[in-house]
Design a protein around this nucleic acid. Structure first.
Lengths: 330, 330
DNA sequence: GAACTTTCTGTAACCGGTTACACTTATAAG
DNA sequence: CTTATAAGTGTAACCGGTTACAGAAAGTTC
C-alpha cells in the first residue's frame, strides 16, 4: 500500500504539497495538482485515515447506545441519526448494549480513548447511568423529563394522557394498563399520564388493573391472561407499547374476546406491524426519525464546541386512531 | 488530557515502561507496575486509541453493510456478529446502505483507508456489487449460491422447495407465490425451489400465480389483491418473506377469505411477529444469529491472515408449521 | 528597477503511542 | 569466582499524515 511519500517521490515534490493537494487544493498550482492526481491514480494511493485521525485528534465517529437493535422504533431513530452524520462526514458506530451496563461502559470508553467523538444514548436516564461524564460529549434521545444532559424526547406523560382520555371519551370507565418494568422511566411517565387522565375524569385508580410487562410481545400475551381471568375484565386496555398490545390481542382473541367489541386496546410507537395486525391498532406515533435527526444535530453542535442555547427539545407526537378501539358495549 | 509521557514523568521512568505496563505487564517489575498504576489513576490517563491504532495499523473495527437496518432479520444477524466481534475486541460499524450503492461505496472506502479492517455484506451478491475488491477483506452473509468471495448462507432453493412440497403434501394443487423483486438473487433461488417442487409433483407452472412484491408489508397487501381478484384463486400462497405474508393475510381477510380454511399461506424468516399474528404463520426460520456468528468468525480468520480452508458455509433452516396452513377445502 | 504582495513549495517538527536494540543488574549454573 | 542466562529498563526511531514557518518565484505598483 503506497503512502503520501511514495506519491511525493513519484511526482518529485514534497509530501506537504501532496497533502495540500488533497485537503486544500486551492493552495496548489494547477500543474502540480494535475501531476499529483496522475501519480495518485497510478499508485492507487489511498490516504491512511488512521494517521489523519490521529494527527487531527478526531475519529470522525459517533456512537449510538441502543438498548435493543432489533427494535423497530430504535432502528428508525438510528436512521435519523445516520442521515445527519452522513452529511457531516461522520461514521456511526452502533453500540448494541442489550441493557447491560458493562457493555455500555465499553462504548463510553471509546469516547474517552478518542476512538469516537461523541455519544447518543437511546435509553432514558436513570440513576445508574454512565452519562453524563467528564470528557464525554453526549446527548440523550428518547428519554424522559429531567435528563441531566442535552436531550431530545417526546412528552410521554401527555401522550399517555391523551390515549387514556380518548378511551374515556368513548365511554370507557374500567381501563386496564399494560406497563413496562416498574422502574423504567418511560413506565413511570406514561403511568403518570394514565393516572392524570383518570383523575381528571373522576375515575378511581384500581391497581388491579395494572399488568406489568417488559415491552416485548410475549409479556403482552402474558398480561392479557391477567385481564382475561378477572371476574369483570376492563373494557379497554392501554398498552405502553405496540408489541405488548399485539401480544395481548393474540391472548385476548384466543380467549374469545372480540376486539374492539368486547375490549378496546391501544399501543404506543406505531410499529409498522400495527397497521397490519387484526384489527389495526390505535396507537401513538413517535417522530422517531426526527428524534434521531434532532439528537444528532445537537451532538454535532456540542462536538463543534457551540454553546447549547437550549438543551432540551420536546417533539410532538401523533395520535393515530385505528380499529382496535370502540365504545364499550351497552 | 494526559499522555503516556505525563505518566512516565510522574513515575520517573520511560514511556517504554509505561507502554509495556499496559500491554505486556509481565515484562515489568511488580514495583514499577504499582507506581505506574498509581500515576495513571492520579492523572486519569486514558491511552489515545487513535495513536495506538495508527501505530498498529489496525482500527479494530469491522463494518456491516446492512440493506435495511429496520429489518428484524438483519438485526438478529447483526447481534450474532456483535457477539463474536466483542469477544475479539473489535468494534462494529453499522453501514446502513438502504440499497444505495453510493452509500455502500462510502463504507467500502473505510476499509481501503484503514478505518476498518474488514466488511460483512448482508446483501446477496450481484453483478453490480463492489465486493470482492482488492485490499478489502470481506465476507458475505445471507447470500446465495456462487458468491465469489467467502460466504455464509442458507440453502434458499431447498427451503422454498420444502415449503412448497409441504403445501402439495396437504393436497394443494393451485399454489400462488408472492415473490421479491425479480432480479433479487433470493427471489431467483426461492422461485427455483418453488418450481422444482411443482415439477416433482407434476403440477404445471402458471405464471399468473406469481405476484411480485418487494419484501415489505405493503407489497404483500398489494399482492393479495391480485389473487383475490382471480376467478379461481389459489388455495395456498407461498410468500418469500413473513412481512409480505402478513400484509397478504390482512388483505385476504378483509376480502372475506378465511385463513387457513379458504386459503393457506406461508412465510419466510420467522419474524417475531409471525408467531403473534392471526393465525400464526407457518414459516421458515433462518438461523439468523448463527449466520452472523459464522460470518464474523470467517472474517476474523481472514483478518488474522489464516488461509480459508473452506469459503462457503451453508447453515440448516428450520421449517416451522403453525396455523396458517391446512388442507384445501373439499 | 526597487519595493511590495501574492502564489507556490519545501523543510522539518509534531501527534502519542510501540518496540528493536542495547544495556544494566540480578540470579543460576558450573 | 567466573560465566551464562534472565529480568527489567531506557533510548530513540518509527508509523503517515499535517502544518508552521521560511524562502523562492512570479506578478504588481509606483
Amino acid at each position: 500500500m503506497s503512502t503520501i511519500r511514495d506519491v511525493a517521490k513519484e511526482v518529485g515534490c514534497s509530501t506537504a504539497t501532496v497533502s495540500r493537494a488533497l485537503s486544500n487544493p486551492e493552495k496548489v498550482s494547477k500543474a502540480s495538482l494535475k501531476r499529483i492526481h496522475t501519480a495518485i491514480d497510478k499508485l492507487q494511493y489511498r490516504p491512511n485515515m488512521l494517521s489523519q485521525q490521529f494527527r487531527n485528534k478526531q475519529a470522525k465517529t459517533i456512537v449510538i447506545l441502543v438498548p435493543d437493535i432489533a427494535n423497530l422504533f430504535f432502528s428508525t431513530v438510528i436512521s435519523g441519526i445516520e442521515n445527519v452524520a452522513q452529511n457531516k462526514g461522520f461514521n456511526v458506530l452502533l453500540g448494541d448494549t442489550r441493557d447491560s451496563s458493562e457493555r455500555e461502559a465499553n462504548f463510553v470508553k471509546l469516547v474517552e480513548t478518542k476512538q469516537a467523538d461523541g455519544i447518543i444514548q437511546l435509553r432514558p436516564y436513570s440513576e445508574d447511568s454512565l452519562l453524563p461524564r467528564k470528557f464525554v460529549t453526549a446527548v440523550n434521545a428518547c428519554g424522559c423529563e429531567n435528563t441531566p444532559y442535552p436531550s431530545v424526547r417526546i412528552d410521554n406523560i401527555d401522550a399517555a394522557r391523551q390515549v387514556t382520555e380518548y378511551l374515556i371519551s368513548l365511554g370507557h370507565k374500567k381501563i386496564g394498563i399494560i406497563s413496562g418494568l416498574n422502574d423504567n422511566p418511560h413506565t413511570i411517565d406514561r403511568m403518570q399520564g394514565y393516572l392524570l387522565a383518570l383523575a381528571d375524569a373522576g375515575i378511581e385508580f384500581d391497581k388491579n388493573l395494572v399488568a406489568e410487562g417488559d415491552f416485548n410481545l410475549w409479556s403482552g400475551l402474558n398480561a392479557s391472561d391477567h385481564f382475561a381471568r378477572m371476574e369483570e375484565p376492563p373494557t379497554a386496555i392501554v398498552s405502553m407499547n405496540d408489541e405488548m398490545a399485539i401480544g395481548a390481542m393474540k391472548g385476548l382473541k384466543s380467549k374469545g374476546f372480540r376486539i374492539p367489541e368486547d375490549i378496546s386496546i391501544t399501543g404506543f410507537d406505531d410499529n409498522p406491524f400495527s397497521k397490519y395486525c387484526d384489527p389495526p391498532l390505535t396507537t401513538v406515533a413517535q417522530p422517531a426519525e426526527k428524534l434521531g435527526e434532532k439528537a444528532a444535530q445537537l451532538l454535532f453542535q456540542l462536538i463543534e464546541g457551540e454553546s447549547e442555547k437550549q438543551s432540551e427539545f420536546v417533539l410532538p407526537i401523533d395520535f393515530i386512531i385505528r380499529q382496535s378501539t370502540a365504545p364499550p358495549k351497552k
